[in-house]
Write a protein that binds this DNA or RNA. Structure first.
Length: 158
DNA sequence: GCCAACGTTGGC
DNA sequence: GCCAACGTTGGC
């Protein structure tokens, strides 16, 4: 079992949107960064748990937990000329060079854990989230960090 | 293969 | 909305 953190701008797609999706499951498409893609392709497995992080808002925060419902598979939006995620290079090749996963809502945190709080906890100082210049939209989270944040979020039992 | 120009991310 | 930090692109 591995743990991850996915960033999203809630104006575009929020944890509430995931809760309201059919079967509370949605494709995680549109990732166009090689590092993030490689994590989805190689390391993210069905059943892994994911912190849902809301970025680019006045108080960025971890708000919920999702579970990987389907491991990495080709992101077909790269081949769809009508998609905002269309990728000409994938089309040239005839196959998508990008990867997506399916994620299912699992648990809302009882309390959101803000970026500010994460920065204040010395045991979380190593988290990618709080490293300077870290923009990766999909990040690994250690089991230790996972537990601390669950505790801060009021989630004691998964 | 270098690197300037450009585009994106995301906290503030 | 600004802008620093990054990632990608493409001419050479």
């Amino acid at each position: 079992m591995n743990y991850w953190l996915f960033k999203t701008e809630p104006d575009a797609f929020s944890f509430d949107d995931l809760l309201q999706a059919p079967n509370q499951t949605e494709i995680w498409d549109g990732v166009r960064n090689y590092q993030a893609r490689n994590l989805m392709r190689d390391d993210i497995k069905k059943g892994d748990l994911v912190f849902f992080y809301h970025s680019r808002i006045p108080e960025p925060a971890i708000v919920g937990i999702g579970k990987i419902a389907k491991a990495g598979y080709p992101d077909h939006t790269a081949l769809d000329p009508n998609s905002k995620y269309f990728d000409a290079k994938s089309e040239e090749k005839g196959e998508s060079r990008w990867v997506m996963v399916d994620i299912k809502a699992y648990r809302r945190l009882k309390r959101v854990v803000t970026l500010k709080e994460v920065k204040e906890v010395s045991d979380l100082a190593e988290m990618k989230l709080v490293q300077k210049g870290q923009r990766l939209s999909i990040q690994p989270v250690s089991e230790y960090e996972w537990k601390i944040i669950c505790e801060l979020g009021g989630v004691t039992k998964l």
